[in-house]
């Protein structure tokens, strides 16, 4: 399913009774997210912020119509909870958890593909369609409606850039965190497709980093298929090769995924590339003005 949410998107929260689960359920409700049920085995019948808690995803789907699920579940239990969601027909599944074993991620993504479930994450802050619905842990206040769709591999860096745009009066349409792990459910291209179709999105911002080849592949796709203006910010220009900088994703593997290679590929596709964060709002403003008249 598309990553563009609406105010009627019915969300369930797996792990709703935990500390993080209950806190962020409240935050999401405040943002406007329509949370129809929570799931916590053994807690069926309880409520969290007036949201009914079920023992199984099956109940949450059959009884409350859940179509999207977000997991607040520790890494060792993510595989089971995710497959439970996919098995029960959840169409969009958001995996926030960090340190999920890669074998588990591979298994659940393969199963999701068979069942037609879209996986966001693991190791993501989630996603939001500004003003309508937010799923995950991003801070509410920076997600104000506007014309810019944002795709990112990194959480706080997204807040930084979304916040910097908001400070300049530029709001966001949909913001999606792909996740910082080496293997995640979505790549830039999957989300670019949705944003290119989304009428609220007039310009796309990609927040990438060194390592892997996701940005290069996105560049090739943009060149051929994307008409909306695209601005990219890339982190890791100063990173020494061979060191893993926090994200498992940000490893420069034997000369592949270098900063220079990514910049070149993106610029050839007509993407404006910012290499320091504070350049992003002015580049976005300029391209919005020149190409969309905003």
């Amino acid at each position: 399913m598309s990553i563009v949410l609406t105010e009627s998107t019915k969300v369930i929260v797996q792990g709703i009774t935990g500390k993080q689960g209950s806190f962020h359920t409240e935050q999401m409700l405040q943002y406007g997210t329509r949370i129809v049920a929570g799931v916590s085995p053994g807690h069926g019948g309880e409520t969290i912020s007036e949201v009914p808690v079920c023992n199984t995803v099956k109940e949450a789907v059959e009884g409350f119509g859940g179509e999207v699920s977000v997991l607040f579940v520790p890494a060792p239990f993510v595989k089971d909870a995710a497959i439970e969601a996919i098995h029960n027909g959840i169409k969009l599944l958001v995996l926030l958890t960090e340190h999920v074993p890669i074998k588990d991620t591979i298994a659940l993504i393969a199963y999701a593909k068979q069942k037609g479930t879209t996986i966001v994450g693991p190791n993501t802050f989630g996603l939001a369609t500004s003003g309508l619905s937010k799923i995950g842990i991003a801070p509410n206040r920076y997600f104000v409606p506007g014309p810019v769709g944002v795709i990112s591999r990194s959480g706080t860096l997204s807040y930084e850039i979304v916040g910097a745009l908001a400070a300049e009066g530029i709001g966001t349409s949909s913001v999606v965190g792909l996740g910082g792990d080496r293997i995640v459910g979505l790549d830039f291209i999957d989300v670019i497709k949705d944003l290119e179709q989304d009428p609220s999105t007039k310009l796309i911002v990609m927040i990438g980093e060194i390592g892997g080849s996701a940005e290069e592949k996105a560049a090739t796709y943009i060149k051929q298929h994307v008409k909306k203006p695209v601005v990219a910010y890339l982190a890791g220009k100063s990173a020494p090769p061979g060191k893993t900088m926090g994200h498992a994703g940000a490893i420069v593997e034997r000369g592949k995924g270098t900063f220079e290679g990514k910049v070149k590929a993106l610029e050839q596709a007509g993407v404006s590339v910012a290499t320091v964060t504070f350049e992003v709002p002015s580049i976005v403003a300029l391209r919005l003005q020149n190409e969309t008249g905003m």
Binding site: S152, T156, L157, E209, A235, M245, G246, A250, T277
Partner: peptide, 15 residues
């Protein structure tokens, strides 16, 4: 706080 923003901070120092 956060891998991406830490990397971005390093880039700014370098800048």
């Amino acid at each position: 706080n956060g891998a991406g923003i830490t990397m971005a901070t390093l880039d700014l120092i370098d800048y």
